[in-house]
Simulated scan of single mutants.
Amino acid sequence: MNHNLTTPATGEPADGEWIGGEPSVLVFDVNETLIDFESMDPLFEKIFGDGRVMREWLGHLFMYSMTITLSGLWESYFTLGQGLLKMVGDIHGVEVTDADIEEIRQAMLTMPAHPDVEPGLSRLKDAGFRMVTLTNSPSNPHGPSPLEHAGLAHFFERQFTAETVRAYKPAPQAYHLVAQGLDVPPSTCFMVAAHVWDTVGAQSAGYTAGLITRPGNAPLPVHSLPQPNLVALDLPALATQFIQLWRS
């Protein structure tokens, strides 16, 4: 069964279509989709004199995680992030100390959720949807995960990480990890993410996908590429669309 969908921002038909039937699993990205990275801006302000450097560093983290995967290499997300902090320091002529790196590492483990996330997840859970997470961040065997710190872990059946397959999203191995781990076809998985590169990767692996357009994010209007099946400004708005489609 295919559904033509609309985007709430424009009311125009969405270019994407459902690949299969009703999604049985909602797969959530964590970083920026659920967790608020901008909570670290004050740390970057303290170290670099400009909180906007956080965005520069995060963009490098996304780019170089993809680079090492495409190059057939592997390094842990935190180790890569620490090296990139030193690189960004060199770019800006700022000495990044080991103490700075440790402070940012701890902050990455304890970031808060976006304020709209818990209401949106509650609506989806109450509607009976299965929910898991898939993140590029590693697990934390020595303590609580970022989701646990943010008070969100209880919403999710399982927490998947790209470190299991040693390939970062948007590599198809990461998305197949979830489908294989849950023993469901990829076509029954629906990716929820704040980044188009993540929705494109998921759809290329056989998922359907929804984009949350958090500040700094928007659909990519290149119609030869997969377009998000749903687009919303925040998670409650996405939940409303999803429930209307599959629970009404």
Results as ranks from 00 to 15, higher is better:
G143K: 06
T6N: 05
M191N: 04
F78V: 15
L134P: 12
L147R: 10
S248C: 04
Q159S: 07
H60M: 12
D126N: 14
M1H: 09
V53W: 03
S224E: 12
T164W: 01
M66F: 09
G181K: 08
Y207E: 00
S137I: 03
P170Y: 08
G120L: 04
L58H: 12
G128N: 08
L61F: 03
I104E: 07
P221S: 08
M131D: 10
P8Y: 06
L70D: 13
R130K: 15
L80E: 04
Q241A: 07
W74A: 08
V196R: 04
Q82S: 13
M87I: 07
P115G: 05
F242I: 15
H3Q: 07
V27D: 01
F242L: 15
D29N: 09
G216L: 09
C189P: 04
F37N: 14
L73Q: 14
F190L: 12
M111C: 13
L134T: 01
I47Y: 10
L147S: 02
A194C: 09
F28H: 05
K169S: 06
F155N: 06
M111F: 05
A202I: 03
T97W: 06
R214H: 10
R214S: 01
F78H: 08
L121F: 06
L26M: 06
R247K: 15
L177E: 10
G93E: 00
K86L: 13
T135R: 06
P144R: 11
L34F: 05
G20D: 11
G143S: 11
V231C: 09
H142P: 00
S122D: 11
A194R: 02
T199W: 02
P112H: 02
L61D: 04
G181W: 01
R166P: 03
T164H: 08
P119L: 14
D41M: 14
L177F: 02
K86C: 01
D183H: 10
E38T: 13
M1D: 08
Q180P: 02
F44N: 06
P138W: 07
P186A: 02
M108H: 10
Q241M: 10
V222R: 14
G83M: 13
S145E: 09
E17S: 12
L233V: 06
V132I: 13
D126P: 00
M108Q: 13
D198Q: 02
I35N: 03
Y175P: 02
F156N: 00
G59T: 07
E163R: 07
S122M: 00
M111T: 14
S139V: 13
G81S: 14
M1Y: 04
A9V: 00
